[in-house]
Design a binder for these strands. Structure first.
Lengths: 242, 242
DNA sequence: CGTGTCGTTGAGCGCTTTCAACCCTGGTGG
DNA sequence: CCACCAGGGTTGAAAGCGCTCAACGACACG
């Protein structure tokens, strides 16, 4: 980890460009920028260990940050993959509780680290910021519920189907193509599957001809089958020997 | 479902006694009570279906309310079991999004239903209420992370061990006794296990002599073994044939 | 051209689920 | 007072699904 000696004004300038601070009062940003630092993280570098107290509110400038719960067998359960404009750690700072997940860079990354004292002080004094943060937390909570729903699906096939479905923009037509938003390994870890199982399920779906996969590029040809899979389970063959 | 014709003043009086409203301004409660209703739910009666728009903010007066995601195989994943003083639905109301879970009474129950328009209006106008709700959501989010951690454990033994561990009050001694906070069936559904597996795991732990189970009464004799189980996995025998 | 990372594929095992029957307890009514 | 019933829980047997381990393949990068 590398604290970069960046002048406060430049940090504040960077904050302006972050989605997270969209619509925030300029004076508020100035006060938050005081005592903030910019941090560089190399790939695989750990920023926070599960159980640590957070030393800042973190906002991702670039790269990708993996939030995950380490499991006893060495595997991980990915909670979130934070990218440019995302932030994390608000609940821990607000409640002054230890962090429930590990935080590790998935790629070389840059972050803003906002001083927790100042963060809390401004949060107390700015009704706007409080309301804004409440809205954010509500959205996060609903997203978390969707994630839980996906992980709760009884079969791997359904988990993947649910996952792919919720990737689709709402206004999309019958078929569409996109690229997976992260490494397959990390997506698998978010779905509560092993990398191998995830790979097999994708291969199975491809063989059944309702998706085509090439690297991280995915094209869904038949949404109706995908939807019925997600809803109903596996009347079709299972992804074993085929 | 039964809307009980209760005068506004009495509802407000009831609200006073709810933990949820502890420390709230009296005028605020009066305004919230206007347009609020009291609701009776019989056991197994459904209040909200997944996907519905919430018609109120709900606060539990008595009984038990199950929030769960219905699964394709007929099973459910319990998100929360709300009891006296608990509330639910804030994120949906704030974001005006459909409810991500089913809401069903686990026992005969009574609830306060606060009008969503009024709730949002007061939330907008009261910085206190906004801050209070933000704190609440933060606590909920951290609790949800703990739940996810439990469900993410790779073996049923570890899931149950984690669950039992986090039931323990922090100041408790080496051994302690308590009663399970819900039906075993519902606890199992919260852990992402079938009822049968949960039962077998408890039986296994009892046979190994670090807990004793009698109905919903549980006594843990050996926390160190419990903790090592949760951390390490299953070096000991597995709960199959014993 | 080696090396590292990411992903795929294969084989085998074992845990969890499923389905079924059974047990136990508390409540109810004759 | 006891027979009966319903709901909750336990136990057994069988099978399938996902995990693990391992080897291999593809691709990028120095």
């Amino acid at each position: 980890m590398n604290f970069m000696p960046i002048p406060c004004t430049q940090i504040q300038e960077t904050m302006t460009r972050m989605r997270y601070f969209e619509g925030w009062d300029k004076d508020l940003l100035v006060r938050l920028a005081v005592g903030s630092k910019q941090i560089s993280l190399g790939k695989k570098e750990k920023l926070v260990a599960k159980g640590d107290r957070l030393e800042a509110l973190y906002v991702v400038i670039s790269g990708q940050i993996r939030l995950f719960i380490p499991l006893s067998n060495g595997a991980e359960r990915v909670i979130s993959l934070a990218e440019r404009g995302d932030a994390f750690g608000e609940p821990c700072l607000i409640e002054e509780e230890p962090c429930p997940y590990d935080v590790v860079a998935g790629k070389d990354s840059h972050l803003i680290a906002i001083d927790p004292q100042i963060y809390r002080r401004e949060l107390r004094q700015s009704p706007f910021m409080t309301e804004h943060t409440l809205n954010l937390m509500s959205r996060r909570m609903l997203q978390t519920m969707r994630d839980i729903e996906i992980c709760a699906q009884p079969s791997s096939l359904q988990r993947v189907a649910h996952y792919l479905i919720q990737l689709r923009p709402v206004d999309e037509a019958q078929e569409f193509e996109f690229r997976l938003p992260a490494l397959k390994r990390d997506i698998a870890a978010k779905l509560g599957l092993s990398q191998e199982t995830f790979s097999r399920v994708l291969a199975f779906m491809a063989k059944q001809c309702f998706i085509r996969v090439s690297g991280s590029q995915v094209r869904v040809d038949d949404w109706s089958r995908m939807l019925s899979l997600a809803a109903a389970g596996c009347q079709t063959e299972v992804p074993g020997k085929n």
